[in-house]
Design a protein around this nucleic acid. Sequence first.
DNA 1: CGGCGCCTTGAAAAGAATCAAGTCTCGTGG
DNA 2: CCACGAGACTTGATTCTTTTCAAGGCGCCG
Lengths: 242, 242
Amino acid sequence: MTINCENCPLRPLELFDDISKEEEQFMLRFKTGELNAQPGTQILTEGRASAHLYTALKGMGLRYKTLEDGRRQVVGFILPGDFIGLQSGVMEEMQHSVEASTYMTLCVFNRSSLWDLFKTQPRRAFDLTHASAIEESLLGEMLSAVGQLDGMAKVSWVLNRFYKRLTALDLNHNDRVTLPYRQQDLADAMGLSLVHTNKTLAKLRQDSIASWADGVLDVHNPDQLAQRAHSVGERLLKRPLI
Amino acid sequence: MTINCENCPLRPLELFDDISKEEEQFMLRFKTGELNAQPGTQILTEGRASAHLYTALKGMGLRYKTLEDGRRQVVGFILPGDFIGLQSGVMEEMQHSVEASTYMTLCVFNRSSLWDLFKTQPRRAFDLTHASAIEESLLGEMLSAVGQLDGMAKVSWVLNRFYKRLTALDLNHNDRVTLPYRQQDLADAMGLSLVHTNKTLAKLRQDSIASWADGVLDVHNPDQLAQRAHSVGERLLKRPLI
DNA sequence: CGGCGCCTTGAAAAGAATCAAGTCTCGTGG
DNA sequence: CCACGAGACTTGATTCTTTTCAAGGCGCCG
């Protein structure tokens, strides 16, 4: 285990809540290992239970649901600090799949010790519920975007969201952030066709608002981007890191 | 307080998990009263914290988010047994508003005793997280529907969802269920215009699949409805009642 | 009686999906 | 070393779903 909770690279970030020494000790026991996943690896599968829960440490991935006819809805993008597998932890099975988009490193926890967490670490249990509530509110925002915005606003919305989240993770260098997804992934997230997504991205590029190519998103005009996304500066709230 | 947890009308339903006598006693203390809300009443407001949490006992309502330009996205329909206000309980504030569509009765809990629940009732804390995870998966399904389905499928999907949920609550009488919403509510939920929703409902009526009028949904052909919704019989899982 | 809220319907306009090529890069194998 | 194919990104043309616009109807309440 190359990274233990005491020198967690994410914890010091402004975005995440601090935890006590005692909680840190518990997490150290709770964490049973690390998982390294290659791009394209399926980490969790819809409809299946999992013996493990994870926290993303490095790399990015995505959550998605598959419909009967093969269509795919991306229900979330996984960035460092995201907790994965809660559904399989408290319900019978996962309601969506999780896949690595880049090379990823994840902390591994045993599902079987989850109950121990609830019994002995009420503060951590609260954090877990908190994390779940955040996930829920994220989905609500995404639903609003997919349900109410037009193509240009949807694409701007998702780019803006990445820009904000990655900035909060200190991964913004001069308004450039890594965005290692395919256009199809964003299209599936926003409920747009690949073609339309592509053309909308081209427009944003032409208008010198944002360029996304070769896995790097370059935001030339953050204000204009937020405006097209119809989203006015909702700051990201401090949140727990499991 | 006309209803105490020992004779809760919802608990006996197949849909809900049982709880122990001891937990029941705790809930009795946790519950501080009842709220009766008239149709149209705002129960919780987006962007605001609330001193109370609720469980819907009778009646129906909806959760929605309002966009800057006035558009509205319905992010959920509230039926008896639904827990309300978790976001305000664990985060700073609500991320969506909650409004009563019919006359409603709700159990009232104090936000301040929530921490006590986590400290002394790990099993109930787990249930709370479970409830949150279910809410999250519901949103994921809704997102998939809004993102991937066409108009007919969306309308069928939401009607079918009501049909299933209300059936599980024993509120289905001969394939008729109460559906006390306006067409605009369903339109705002599925990201469709009111006009298109109306025309799609007309089609379902013409095809003798489902008729919805005067607050009552009549499902003439459940199989066909499910088929148009592109959703094949996912059974509703047993879930906790808070 | 008048106005308001909700449902209904037709016609026109627009936004997005689909269809159809074509380019570019990269890894593989002849 | 180069041909080949797969995967991702582009772009133009066409089709069609859905929105917007417009208007009328119905029931209810002040």
